[in-house]
Design a protein around this nucleic acid. Structure first.
Lengths: 220, 220
DNA sequence: TTAAAAATTGACGACGCGTCACGGATCGTT
DNA sequence: AACGATCCGTGACGCGTCGTCAATTTTTAA
């Protein structure tokens, strides 16, 4: 383990000790919070519960976060930061409406299917209550989507429609269908994305049939 | 016996006094809660805050509700009970896909536009946090929608699509676009409903054009 | 009129909240 | 190395809310 003794400087402390424990403590708290939120649900969790799942003292918590809400937002932001660039990249590559829509849903649904445990932890508190926190990071993701839509309209890719409402519709369908998808026994992100894509491209009448594999038209 | 004959009751008290104050106190609490939630937001509100806005004592609260969450659900259920029959009636009258979809969105958006204060109180807690509580009443409304979709498929009104995902999509778009609508200076439920309807009927390409200076008249 | 039943009241112990004075750990300097 | 200066973890403290419960008041039924 301590090859660092043999090799005097193999980067034992790239940061000062202060900065090191600072990062470490923050991660300690976030990790504990993820665990406790998943166990008790957000509503039932107290700051004390989180700090108790940690070797730290109660006062230390407030050096890092103002409240459990802020911890929650930090966790949420991590997720948003992970998916936002992927979504934007996909959209930027799109040359047609079909590509724009299908790549967005495909990426989103696959992300949700992979990280469905995190998604559940984040959205489902105890009981029947569901959560959604629009952190600056998440809102920025929405704005980004709307900007890309507006750009696509200017480029003649999209007709001159209400970009705000279209963004809202994409978000609503993505979240809601994504949620149903992870509730099913067999999570099928491709099917979910196909459904959503077909809806946006051609409306109800072009949606893939439910029971049969269906001759596919949808994704470019 | 005889006294009842001598003084026939003109029904000053159709209910016993007990039942009367029971109903009254419940409404007292709900009214106070609506007010306090709107002022402080759900998260910051305490049971004490609610009961303080009432002539009752703290212990009395717990004779009526277990927690502030339960009060919240009761308020939510009132809203759900108000809109559910209207939505179902409209859907039942539908003879075509267009009618089914447009009447659903029209009714929903008009309801949201009318009661936007209540909607805000319910969905927006303090800060950036948004809420959604799926009470049994609300979930039943979703189920009802899905059943109506399945019935429409059996009747040949709809193609044989995934009713669950379609329901989720309708719900997602309705909530999300409805939310944007009430945030705008001029709330226009008809425009919002038209947008959502066009999306579901024919996809993006049939969406109504947004109002904008005619820099160019492209081909839609 | 009176006793049983039901509902209200507010005080109580428990606990979570956010703060802050204290003291040990880390840093920069000589 | 040694030594202040600064940073930051610590846990006890005062405050407020929680849900409960025995005492009390109100309503009902006899």
């Amino acid at each position: 383990m301590d090859s660092s003794l043999l090799k005097p400087i193999a980067r034992p402390e790239p940061l000062g000790k202060r900065e090191q424990t600072k990062v470490q403590n923050r991660e300690l708290i976030l990790e504990a919070a993820r665990k406790v939120f998943a166990e008790l649900g957000f509503g039932a969790t107290t700051v004390r519960d989180i700090i108790r799942a940690t070797p730290l003292a109660s006062g230390t918590f407030y050096n890092y976060f103002k409240s459990k809400e802020e911890v929650f937002q930090a966790i949420q932001d991590d997720v948003a930061l992970a998916i936002r660039p992927r979504l934007r990249d996909e959209r930027r590559k799109a040359k047609t409406v079909e590509e724009f829509i299908s790549s967005t849903f495909r990426t989103f649904m696959e992300f949700v299917a992979e990280d469905h445990m995190t998604v559940r932890t984040i959205r489902h508190t105890a009981d029947t209550t569901r959560f959604r926190v629009d952190t600056p990071e998440v809102v920025a993701g929405f704005e980004e989507l709307r900007e890309d839509i507006e750009k696509a309209i200017q480029d003649g890719l999209f007709p001159p429609i209400d970009a705000d409402y279209l963004m809202a519709s994409l978000v609503g369908v993505a979240f809601e269908v994504g949620e149903r998808m992870v509730q099913r026994e067999k999570r099928d992100p491709v099917a979910a994305a196909s459904f959503a894509t077909a809806l946006f491209i051609g409306g109800i009448r072009t949606l893939p049939n439910a029971d049969r594999p269906a001759a596919e038209t949808g994704t470019a």
